[in-house]
Amino acid sequence: MKIPSVLFMFLLLGLTAFAPPVKLTTTKLATGLSVGVPATFAPLPDDGIATKYPSPRKPLAVFSNPSGRVDFSVAVRPTTFESMDYGVLLKIYKSSIQRLYSKVEFLKEDIRTVKGRDFIYFEFVSTVTDGQRTNQLAPIKRYQAVQYAIQGQQLYVFTFVAPANEQAQWQPTAQAVMNAIALK
């Protein structure tokens, strides 16, 4: 007996509607900034951040799942833009994301409001391929949710990254984390 695809979709949606809610722990990172972090995630120490995210400007905080394959990070950078520039910044950041990776499949991109604050939001699957012909490495694919906000002269960047083959597992968590950000 074949199940029509529409019926199958309703069945799948019905089953996922009863999935347990994501458990987040509220963590205060700075004055006026708190985030929801999955209960099983742990903060990376400074040396772990330096190893995993080598940069002259290290993230404000990084939280990883027990396997270390999934991260939620918060970075702060100076900016001369203002929140009224979000429409232009959406296009600029989308272009920047496309330049960072070999291929990008955008799932969502918009300006949205979370807890009374506007954010620029992207959800996508990125692919990095080895451009050298001598060493053909397997492509690296990642599911990512990125949210940007401007507060004063600071740009806050919230990033959730997971392996693309685990997107179905981590997408609800990424969305819950992004919806739990409180920036005053």
Rank of each mutant, 00 (worst) to 15 (best):
T25E: 12
T26C: 02
K28D: 01
L29D: 03
L29T: 04
L33T: 00
S34T: 06
V35N: 00
V37A: 05
V37Y: 01
P38T: 04
T40C: 10
F41W: 11
F41Y: 09
L44V: 03
P45H: 06
D46K: 09
D47P: 02
G48M: 09
I49P: 02
I49G: 02
A50Y: 09
T51E: 02
P56E: 03
R57P: 02
F63K: 09
P66L: 13
G68M: 10
R69L: 14
R69D: 14
V70Y: 13
D71K: 06
F72T: 14
S73W: 02
A75V: 05
R77P: 01
R77D: 12
T79S: 02
T79L: 01
T79G: 00
F81D: 11
E82V: 00
Y86S: 08
V88L: 14
V88G: 05
L89Y: 03
L89Q: 04
K91T: 15
K91P: 00
Y93S: 04
Y93V: 13
K94N: 03
K94Q: 10
S95Q: 12
S95I: 01
S96D: 13
Q98L: 15
R99S: 06
L100Q: 13
L100D: 10
Y101A: 12
Y101Q: 14
Y101E: 07
E105N: 10
E105W: 10
K108W: 06
G116P: 07
R117N: 07
R117I: 12
D118M: 06
F119M: 07
I120T: 10
Y121H: 09
F122G: 02
F124K: 15
F124N: 04
F124S: 10
F124E: 10
S126H: 14
V128R: 15
V128P: 13
V128L: 15
